[in-house]
Amino acid sequence: MTATPLSPADARLAIDRGARLIDIRGTDEHARERIPGAISLPLYRIADLPRDGLPVVFHCRTGMRTSAHAAQLVSAASGAPAFLLDGGINGWRRAGLPTIADRSQPLEIMRQVQITAGALVLSGVLLGLFVAPGFFALSAFVGSGLMFAGVTGWCGMARLLQVMPWNRRAVAASTAPRSGFDLR
Rank of each mutant, 00 (worst) to 15 (best):
T2A: 15
A11L: 12
I100S: 07
G143L: 08
G53Y: 05
V163K: 10
V56M: 04
G96H: 09
V57N: 08
S179E: 13
D52M: 09
F135N: 06
L6D: 11
C155L: 06
A38R: 02
S174M: 07
R12A: 15
T175N: 12
F58A: 01
R61I: 04
C155S: 08
S78D: 15
R32Q: 05
A71M: 06
F58K: 03
D23N: 10
L107T: 05
Y44L: 10
I35C: 01
I35K: 00
E29N: 12
A132S: 14
V74P: 02
D86Y: 07
L127G: 09
V74H: 05
A77F: 02
N90D: 14
G143Q: 12
F130M: 03
V113G: 05
A9N: 09
I22N: 01
A9E: 15
W154E: 07
R169W: 08
P36V: 02
G88H: 12
D28A: 05
T62E: 08
L129K: 02
F83L: 02
F136S: 01
T66S: 13
D182P: 02
F141H: 07
A119K: 05
L146R: 07
H59I: 11
W92P: 07
T27P: 10
P177A: 11
A68H: 14
L49R: 08
N167V: 09
P55E: 10
V142Q: 02
I109H: 01
G79N: 07
L85W: 11
A71L: 11
A170H: 04
G128C: 02
V74D: 04
L120G: 04
S75A: 12
A173L: 14
V121T: 13
D28F: 03
T27I: 04
V125Y: 07
F130C: 00
H30E: 05
Q105N: 06
V74R: 06
L41S: 07
D52H: 11
L73I: 01
A71T: 13
P50S: 07
A47Y: 03
L129A: 09
L160S: 01
P165L: 05
S144F: 15
L122R: 05
G79R: 03
L107H: 10
L146V: 10
S144Y: 15
P8N: 13
G156C: 00
G91K: 14
L129I: 08
T116L: 09
L43G: 00
A70H: 11
R184N: 14
G153F: 04
I46M: 01
L41P: 10
T99Y: 00
G91S: 13
A80V: 06
I39F: 06
A132N: 13
I109M: 05
R93Q: 08
R111M: 11
T2D: 15
G145A: 05
I35P: 03
L21S: 11
A80G: 08
